[in-house]
Computed example of a mutant assay.
Amino acid sequence: MSIIPEKSKTRRVQTLNELSKRKVVEHNSLITSIAKMDKTPLKMFELAVSLIDTDNPPKDQTVYLSKQELFAFFKVTDNDKHSRFKEAIQKMQKQAFFEIVEKTSNGFEFESIVPIPYVKWADYHDEVTIQFSDKIMPYLINLKNNFTQHALSDIAELNSKYAIILYRWLSMNYNQYEHYSAKGGRREEQVESYRNPTISIQELRIMTDTVNEYKRFTNFSKKVLDIPLEEITVHTSFNVTYEKVKKGRSIDSIVFHITKKQVADDSSYKLDDRDYIDGKIRQEESENELVLQAMDSPYTKLLMEQFLLSYLDLMDKKILAGLQKNVYPLYDELKELRGLKGVKEHLAYIRDKQDDYSKKNIAKYLKKSIEQYLPIVKRQDIDHE
Rank of each mutant, 00 (worst) to 15 (best):
E6G: 05
I113H: 12
P117I: 01
T77L: 08
L70K: 04
K360I: 04
I350P: 02
M172K: 04
T233H: 12
L16K: 09
M44L: 06
N173Y: 14
N219V: 07
P57R: 07
D226R: 05
L323E: 02
T40I: 13
A321N: 02
E109I: 13
Q380H: 09
N106D: 12
P57S: 15
T241I: 08
K335W: 00
R249N: 04
V24M: 01
K135D: 03
K144M: 11
R186S: 10
S237I: 06
I232H: 03
R216C: 03
Q372T: 06
V263H: 13
M207F: 03
E336S: 08
F217Y: 12
T218C: 10
K43G: 01
I201G: 01
N288F: 11
E231S: 02
I34G: 02
I258F: 01
F147G: 08
H384R: 15
S66G: 04
S253R: 05
L302S: 03
D53C: 14
L51C: 02
G107K: 06
D356M: 08
V114K: 08
L65F: 13
K367P: 02
P58C: 10
D154L: 00
Y242D: 00
K86W: 04
D252E: 07
I376S: 01
V343G: 01
Y269A: 14
L47I: 07
Y299C: 08
L170M: 15
D383P: 04
N173P: 05
P138Q: 05
K161F: 00
Y162I: 03
L158C: 06
P298H: 04
N361C: 06
S29M: 14
I34V: 12
E26G: 02
I199E: 15
S297T: 09
E213G: 02
K301C: 00
Y174G: 10
T208C: 10
T198L: 08
H384T: 11
K318W: 02
K335N: 14
Y214P: 00
S160W: 00
K223I: 08
L347P: 02
Y167W: 03
L309K: 09
Y242I: 09
S20H: 03
H235D: 03
D332L: 04
L30I: 14
L204T: 03
L70N: 03
I370C: 07
I3C: 11
E18H: 10
D209K: 08
N196C: 14
K344G: 02
F97W: 09
M44P: 03
M172Q: 12
Y349R: 08
R216V: 02
V101S: 15
A348I: 07
R351K: 13
E203A: 07
D352G: 10
D38T: 11
N219T: 10
